[in-house]
Simulated scan of single mutants.
Amino acid sequence: MSIKAFSEYLLLEKKYSEHTVMAYTRDIINFQEFLIQHHDTEHLLNANYSVIRQWIVELVDKNISNRSINRKVSSLNSYYKFLLKTEELESNPLKQHKALKVGKKLQLPFSEQELKLVLENSIEIIDFETARNHFIIELLYATGIRRIELVNLKLNDINSGNDQIKVLGKRNKERYIPLINSLKKSLNRYLEFRKDLPEIIDGDMLFLTKNGLKIYEKLVYRIINKYFSEASSKSKCSPHVLRHSFATHLLNKGADLNTVKELLGHTSLAATQVYTHSSITELKKVHANAHPRNRE
Results as ranks from 00 to 15, higher is better:
residue 121 N to C: 10
residue 95 K to A: 13
residue 230 E to M: 08
residue 126 I to N: 14
residue 85 K to Q: 08
residue 60 V to T: 05
residue 101 K to A: 11
residue 42 E to Q: 11
residue 211 N to F: 15
residue 197 L to I: 02
residue 121 N to I: 09
residue 126 I to S: 14
residue 286 V to C: 11
residue 271 A to T: 13
residue 10 L to R: 06
residue 136 I to S: 03
residue 127 D to V: 04
residue 47 A to V: 09
residue 27 D to A: 14
residue 130 T to C: 02
residue 189 R to S: 15
residue 141 Y to L: 00
residue 74 S to G: 10
residue 142 A to P: 04
residue 152 N to S: 04
residue 200 I to Q: 14
residue 183 L to T: 08
residue 11 L to C: 14
residue 194 R to Y: 08
residue 62 K to M: 05
residue 32 Q to P: 03
residue 147 R to V: 02
residue 272 T to G: 07
residue 182 S to A: 14
residue 135 F to D: 02
residue 60 V to N: 04
residue 213 L to R: 15
residue 94 L to Y: 10
residue 202 D to C: 13
residue 4 K to G: 12
residue 86 T to R: 09
residue 115 L to K: 07
residue 39 H to G: 11
residue 274 V to Q: 12
residue 82 F to K: 02
residue 150 L to Q: 08
residue 172 N to K: 14
residue 237 C to V: 10
residue 247 A to E: 03
residue 125 I to P: 05
residue 54 Q to P: 08
residue 210 K to S: 15
residue 48 N to K: 03
residue 234 K to P: 01
residue 270 A to P: 03
residue 129 E to R: 10
residue 266 H to N: 03
residue 55 W to P: 05
residue 174 E to K: 03
residue 46 N to P: 01
residue 21 V to F: 11
residue 47 A to P: 07
residue 66 N to F: 04
residue 225 N to C: 11
residue 272 T to V: 11
residue 118 V to G: 00
residue 241 V to Q: 09
residue 178 P to E: 08
residue 126 I to V: 12
residue 206 L to K: 03
residue 111 S to W: 05
residue 171 R to G: 11
residue 284 K to R: 14
residue 255 A to T: 00
residue 200 I to E: 10
residue 145 I to S: 07
residue 238 S to I: 07
residue 191 L to Y: 01
residue 236 K to R: 14
residue 200 I to R: 14
residue 127 D to F: 02
residue 97 H to C: 06
residue 210 K to D: 13
residue 55 W to V: 04
residue 190 Y to R: 09
residue 10 L to E: 05
residue 254 G to Y: 05
residue 185 K to S: 14
residue 173 K to T: 09
residue 87 E to R: 05
residue 226 K to H: 13
residue 69 I to P: 08
residue 208 L to I: 09
residue 97 H to V: 12
residue 284 K to F: 12
residue 254 G to R: 02
residue 148 I to Q: 05
residue 238 S to Q: 00
residue 70 N to G: 13
residue 174 E to L: 13
residue 180 I to F: 09
residue 164 Q to A: 04
residue 130 T to Y: 03
residue 151 V to N: 06
residue 193 F to W: 12
residue 177 I to A: 06
residue 169 G to A: 00
residue 38 H to N: 10
residue 124 E to N: 13
residue 98 K to D: 01
residue 260 V to W: 00
residue 296 E to C: 15
residue 152 N to Q: 06
residue 201 I to K: 15
residue 80 Y to L: 02
residue 105 K to C: 07
residue 205 M to N: 15
residue 96 Q to W: 10
residue 62 K to H: 04
residue 261 K to I: 08
residue 23 A to I: 10
residue 129 E to M: 12
residue 187 L to F: 11
residue 58 E to F: 06
residue 34 F to Y: 09
residue 202 D to L: 13
residue 189 R to E: 15
residue 239 P to T: 08
residue 215 I to S: 12
residue 258 N to K: 12
residue 157 D to F: 06
residue 146 R to K: 00
residue 53 R to T: 08
residue 273 Q to F: 10
residue 21 V to T: 13
residue 167 V to I: 05
residue 180 I to R: 01
residue 134 H to I: 06
residue 257 L to R: 02
residue 75 S to Q: 11
residue 76 L to I: 06
residue 261 K to L: 04
residue 121 N to Q: 12
residue 46 N to G: 13
residue 98 K to T: 12
residue 270 A to E: 14
residue 92 N to Q: 03
residue 247 A to D: 05
residue 108 L to E: 09
